[in-house]
Computed example of a mutant assay.
Amino acid sequence: MKVHGRSPGTFSLIAPLTLRGNAVVIADLISFLEEWIPPGSAMSRDNPGLQVGDPREELRGVLVALDVTPAVVEEAVSAGVNLILSHHPLIFTPLSRLDQTTPLGGMIAKLVRHHVAVYSAHTNLDASGQGVSMALARALEVDKPRFLAPPESRWLKKLAVFVPPDHAAAVREAMARAGAGVIGEYTHCSFNLEGTGTFQGGENASPAVGVKGNLEQVLEVRIEMILPAWKAGAVVRAMQAAHPYEEVAFDLYPLENSDVSYGFGAIGDLPMPVSLEDLVQRVKERLGCPAVGVMEGPSRNIARLAVCGGSGGELVEAAWKQGADAYLTGEMKYHTLLDYKDRITVLLAGHYPSEAVIVPEWAQRLRQWLDGRPVPVIETRVMTNPLTYQI
């Protein structure tokens, strides 16, 4: 993960499998993923989603990997799968040309020739409550990890709509089903206030209440529900479909709140405090990294641990302010380390080892969703870490 600002976590639910006949198509898997880790929760500079391929094709198998490299593409082709699910996007910046003599152009051409699609979930997976940093925290035995930093405020909106009382329940339910009214572990959250609405229908109007041409005063309920910004279109459409009025009066506006369902990094207490030496050994064993960079802080016993997969230098301030004895991430800028020297212990495990923990968890989640369907889910055997460690 690379943080520019902040980003989101989400519900631990398995969406129902939608089948076209007896086949599972790539679009089915994408629908499941986007309910769990919506692309709209990614950071603005990111490029999650379908990178290459036809979502209408039948799903023959999935290869789960951190990166898409020529070796990973060959692994997918050799295994006979037709979808690579990666954490890091294959295409991060817009392409101005597709030159097959370049590594990226060659990979895309090979993927297209062999009908292998690529779908990536990057900062939206980082921000999930079942994402990279939470998997990293669990691997290191952090008890009941919580988000270290909130997401950007741009992710939340509020919809306020004015409804006749006898239609209020139906409109609330339609909005909730479309994704509004979720606050943490609670759904169907709304505020309702009765008041008087006025309107006067024109010559071509067909009012559901009253008579056109008359200035009507009617009892209405103002319903307010919070919603993720990326679900605004779906929620508004659902509300309008359930609303009895010909012209619906509603307000949709952004909020400065942080969405508690999403966040970056993770922090929590270890079941028992451990020495720095024991924590380093645990990191090596659990993450499979032969070396760990350590900047020693004031505490030699680690009781509270904060983590962030990938490049998490921007969250060290949050870790320090929340009383973490140590902060583990993949990599951090030199001068950021200097700024926090003697304030907090920092462990650098490497970008790849700090994120690779998500691959088996991601694969297992897909197997659960497939629920016994004959679609193999394979964890890559290709080591895409560009670094080797010579000790």
Rank of each mutant, 00 (worst) to 15 (best):
Q130G: 11
A266P: 06
T69G: 02
Y245F: 14
A15N: 06
Y327H: 12
A242S: 05
I378D: 04
Y340T: 01
T388Y: 12
V132P: 00
T93Y: 14
E246T: 03
Q390E: 07
I183D: 04
H243W: 07
S86H: 12
K321P: 04
A363F: 10
V236Y: 03
G265W: 02
V81T: 07
R282V: 00
E57N: 09
R237G: 08
G202V: 06
G105W: 01
T198K: 14
G330K: 02
R177W: 00
R6L: 12
L66I: 11
D143S: 13
G213C: 09
I30C: 09
A168R: 08
M134S: 07
D339V: 06
R20E: 15
L156E: 09
V280T: 13
A326T: 14
M107N: 00
Y245S: 13
M134L: 14
A306D: 09
L215I: 14
M239Y: 02
V3A: 02
A170G: 03
G5P: 08
G53Y: 09
K158G: 13
A149F: 03
A319Q: 02
A169C: 03
L370F: 12
G40F: 12
D166C: 10
K212W: 00
F191N: 10
L19I: 06
V377L: 01
S311Q: 11
I37R: 01
A168L: 10
P38S: 03
A238T: 01
G179A: 07
E331K: 04
S311W: 05
A363E: 07
E355P: 04
Q240F: 04
I183L: 13
P103G: 13
L95I: 02
R343S: 04
A117K: 09
S96T: 15
A318V: 02
Q130H: 11
S12H: 10
L17Q: 10
S12M: 11
D28W: 01
A266F: 11
L338S: 11
T345I: 14
P244M: 06
S96K: 15
A170W: 05
N82D: 04
R304G: 02
A266C: 05
G265C: 05
G297I: 12
L287A: 12
L337G: 15
R343T: 00
E285R: 15
D259Y: 13
I223R: 03
L83C: 11
P353G: 07
I37H: 00
A363N: 05
T380P: 07
A326C: 15
V375Y: 06
T380G: 05
V163Y: 08
Q200D: 06
G181T: 10
T384F: 03
N47F: 12
N385C: 13
I26P: 04
K157E: 15
F191R: 09
C289R: 15
S190I: 10
E355V: 06
A109N: 05
S261P: 01
K284Q: 15
S120K: 07
W155L: 15
A27P: 04
Y186P: 08
K231E: 07
G5N: 11
P207S: 10
G184D: 07
M225N: 09
L156Q: 08
R172I: 11
S78T: 13
M225F: 06
A303Y: 13
Q390P: 00
D325Q: 13
A349L: 14
H351I: 10
L279P: 08
A208T: 07
P151Y: 01
T101K: 14
V81D: 02
N47R: 14
A324R: 08
M134D: 06
T196D: 12
T69D: 03
W36V: 13
R286I: 01
Y119W: 11
A266Y: 08
